[in-house]
Simulated assay, not measured.
Amino acid sequence: MPTADLRVFSCTSGYNAAGEHVLDKAEIVERRDMPIEVPQLLQVNALAAPLRRRLAYRVKQYELNLVLSFLTIPRAGRVAARTTDLRATARHISAFVTESVGMGMLTATMRDFHHWKGDHDHLEHFDALPSDIAGAYRQQRGVRPDLLFRDPAALDSGMAGEARGRTTRPPKSPQPLVAQRRRLDEILGWSARQAYHPVTMAWTCLGGPGVGVDLFDITFPPPSHRRPAPPDPSPPKRPVPEEQPARPAHPTDRSDTTEAVERERREYQSLPRDSDSDGPYVFEAERALSVNAFTAIEHLYQTAPRGDETQIFNDEPVRGDWVSADLIGQSNIQLFLGVLADEPPPTLQSALRARRRRFEAAYDEIQVDVFGRLIVAVSLDSRFAPPWREIATRLGQG
């Protein structure tokens, strides 16, 4: 299986002279190869949609392919970036790739080290929290983490994660870098203002012979020693998007889904359209994990190619097709993005996750995952797209 070099820092937190909650001590307690499920590496970007905008299949497919095209991913061995190409590209493209990989590595460390077992319904972006939990997080100024990994057994709790991606070489120092410590201090300040919310940070570097990830596992002072948080430190850097609607439960009735789609479409069409100037609905840098909201996913489904007649999952056609991850150079990686008309039942998705975790899948050249109505498959060692029966077999349908 592809891997990344993982260093785990065990950290304690305390207080500086100003009474701010900051990093105290940190030491490396573990270093090892972390297995990488490539579809899950793409999960955050696969689920992301620009706020208040429609989502088109070819655009989403191209985004995922762009990330993969800047990586070299062997069947067994270290995932690496095409560093020369990454440094030669435009800054905004480099930032998109490094941010996407950083988010993916944060998700990978949550599954690998913190044993997070959530799915797409339990992953949220702090820029666009659904209304069922947004009230639990006070609107505040200053820095906040990137992602919220909700506990599937208690959806009002979870861990906040900060993802940092860099094009530099992985650090060798046994102590946190100055930049790492500074960012941790900012995130720990946010944590204190949120009643000491659990936090972690994954710092990903793409500039070496292999991708390296520093994970910070943080222990807070005991409750009796915790201090009240200082006021918010700085004015907002950008407008805060209004609350997003709660993600609906798994639909069981297609007529209910259609009605909800039409309702969201009317609400969407009533919003002010995007313009060249900044406005209340223009958040260029912000992306919500809302592709499974009805309007976004329906438009993705409607714009996806129908595929051939063999593309069947759970007795339903799968729209979508394969592309080669060769936008930058020659590649043996093939990517499939599929869209389903309906979300599979939760029991089926749980069975698929259990199947994926089996040991015999560790060296499989084809990796597949299902995120709600999305299917992401990656073939790691082929110049040609594999037949659908190979995907169906791995989804337990063969």
Rank of each mutant, 00 (worst) to 15 (best):
L55W: 01
Q40D: 14
R183S: 13
M201N: 10
E267T: 12
R394E: 02
P152Y: 05
A48M: 13
S277W: 04
W190E: 02
R164C: 11
S331C: 10
S10Y: 02
P39S: 03
R7L: 10
Q367E: 15
A341K: 10
T252F: 04
E162I: 02
T83Y: 02
A304S: 14
F216A: 04
L184I: 13
G210F: 07
A108R: 01
P152C: 06
I297A: 13
V323Y: 01
F294V: 11
R181A: 15
P231W: 00
Q334A: 05
V261G: 01
L395E: 08
E286M: 15
A88H: 07
G142M: 06
H115W: 01
R78L: 11
F294K: 08
F283H: 15
P346I: 02
D121I: 03
R254M: 06
D256Q: 12
I218F: 06
T257K: 12
A153F: 01
G165F: 03
G102F: 00
I333W: 00
S324W: 00
N16W: 02
P171Q: 05
T109I: 00
V143E: 06
D256A: 14
L86I: 06
A80H: 01
G189L: 12
A195T: 04
E259I: 03
R91Y: 05
L300K: 09
K60G: 09
R389I: 12
G142A: 11
P280T: 05
W190Q: 02
R266T: 10
G142Y: 01
D214G: 08
L23I: 05
H21F: 14
R52F: 15
L395V: 05
E259L: 12
E284M: 05
G19C: 09
Y15K: 07
R52N: 15
V44A: 11
T310V: 00
F371P: 09
A136F: 06
S255V: 04
A385N: 04
Y196H: 13
R226S: 08
Y15H: 08
D342Q: 14
N45T: 08
H125V: 01
C11N: 08
L340V: 06
A246C: 08
W190H: 02
P50S: 09
V318D: 06
A354T: 09
P230A: 03
T109A: 15
T252M: 04
P345S: 14
N292A: 08
H197S: 09
A296S: 14
T89R: 02
P235I: 01
P2E: 04
S13I: 03
D33L: 12
A341I: 02
G161N: 08
R144N: 03
S69P: 10
V240W: 03
E309F: 07
D185Y: 03
L184D: 09
P248F: 03
D132T: 07
K237I: 05
P130N: 03
N292E: 15
V211M: 10
E343D: 07
S382N: 12
N65M: 08
L395I: 06
R169T: 15
R319G: 07
C205H: 15
T107E: 15
A361Q: 15
P2M: 04
F113N: 06
P233T: 04
A76I: 07
